[in-house]
């Protein structure tokens, strides 16, 4: 059992270093340590399932160990920025003041095609529109556009926030005939209000596909096309 534990620890560190060395392009969405855990967990859990002569403990011990390593490491990363940067890296400015950092692109092994593809995914088709582009630790690109290319905001147009023009977010109140009580509370409504709405719309709860609402009685109600009997 000690061997399994030590092997798990060694493999975990090895895959962690390996993925860290592979760089951000490989990671995409998942954090480095999370990706390592995911890869190892999926493989380790198969081992005792396929080979019945292997005791279940040979699967349980590494699985538990990996999960514990991940939790402990994420806790340490949360508390220590040095560890966080060591494990997950730092965001890198691939475009700064509208200039591509070509040396960094080379270091990150990110081709211009990859960079342009990531920009296009953010609806930016002209690289001259980019003021700053940061490659985040999870491999995604965050872009800050030049002033002339930015979308117009209410702040730019100097439109003030009033009750008339401020649309509140809509929360899902009923999903497939089920009331989502947390969301009902979020928009300051209760079941009595919901009953009144359903009564006024001549609908029963189980026949509602979707109902959304904000706190100002603005609601959308979509009944099911095939009604439950």
């Amino acid at each position: 059992m000690a061997i399994v534990f030590i092997r798990t620890l060694i493999l975990y560190l090895l895959v962690l270093i390996g993925v860290r060395l592979m760089g951000k392009r490989q990671v995409s969405e998942l954090q480095t340590s999370e990706l390592v855990t995911t890869i190892l967990l999926s493989n380790i859990s198969i081992m005792p399932i396929q080979e019945t002569s292997i005791p279940l403990f040979y699967g349980i011990v590494p699985l538990l160990s990996l999960i514990c390593f991940e939790v402990i490491l994420s806790f340490v990363c949360l508390k220590s920025s040095k560890t966080r940067h060591l494990i997950s890296g730092r965001p890198k400015a691939v475009i700064n003041n509208g200039v591509i950092n070509q040396k960094l692109l080379l270091d990150l092994r990110l081709s211009v095609d990859d960079l342009m593809a990531q920009l296009r995914q953010q609806q930016i088709f002209d690289i001259r529109d980019v003021e700053l582009a940061m490659l985040e630790i999870n491999g995604t690109l965050s872009v800050y556009q030049k002033f002339n290319s930015r979308n117009i905001t209410t702040q730019m147009l100097n439109i003030k926030d009033t009750k008339e023009n401020n649309n509140e977010p809509q929360f899902i109140i009923i999903s497939d005939g089920t009331i989502i009580e947390d969301n009902l509370n979020l928009c300051n409504k209760n079941k009595n209000w919901l009953d009144l709405i359903l009564k006024s719309e001549n609908q029963s709860l189980k026949n509602i596909l979707l109902m959304t609402s904000d706190s100002k009685d603005n609601y959308v109600l979509i009944p099911k096309e095939i009604k439950n009997s």
Binding site: A2, F5, V61, L64, C68, V71
Partner: peptide, 20 residues
């Protein structure tokens, strides 16, 4: 979760080294 992980890891380490 951190505390639980520490406890589980401690149990694994103790049992791993006491099994031999």
């Amino acid at each position: 979760r951190f505390v639980i992980s520490i406890i589980i890891l401690s149990l694994i380490i103790i049992s791993a080294f006491s099994l031999p």
